[in-house]
């Protein structure tokens, strides 16, 4: 089995890039692969807990929690999150927060790196 590192910089609401990244993570984990999901820039919005699911907006908290329970590692850029006021108190349980070097280190052992830019 392989390791996939996904970096996503797009916001939760505004595009479907994060939805795609989470769905791809799910497909890879389903096949037995290891997945590291890195969120930077506006992508750190995904780390906020208590997202209220409206039908008109992407809401990924539930599938993300299920994936984390299956072994998905999700990490938000700490500086990007703090700059947006997404501090530790509002971070979803199980979400890691690190500096950007964590993402680069994850690529070291990755078989594939998929980088999905921001808006």
């Amino acid at each position: 089995m392989g390791k996939l590192t996904i970096g996503c910089f797009a916001s939760l609401v505004g595009s479907l890039n994060l939805d795609f990244a989470v769905k791809l993570s799910a497909a890879a984990i389903e096949k037995g692969h290891t997945v590291d999901l890195w969120l930077s820039g506006n992508g750190t919005m995904l780390s906020i807990k208590d997202q209220r699911p409206f039908k008109d907006y992407s809401h990924l908290e539930k599938p993300l929690k299920e994936l984390m329970a299956k072994g998905l590692t999700v990490t938000a850029c700490e500086a990007c999150a703090e700059a947006r006021g997404y501090n530790k108190d509002v971070t979803m349980e199980g979400f890691k927060r690190h500096s950007m070097d964590w993402y680069l280190a994850s690529t070291f052992s990755a078989d594939r790196v998929l980088h999905i830019g921001g808006e």
Binding site: S99, W102, L104, F108
Partner: peptide, 15 residues
């Protein structure tokens, strides 16, 4: 973000 991530290679070895 490209630049700040690239610069972060300076401390990647801690991991």
């Amino acid at each position: 973000l490209a630049l700040t991530h690239a610069i972060a290679t300076q401390s990647v070895e801690v991991y």
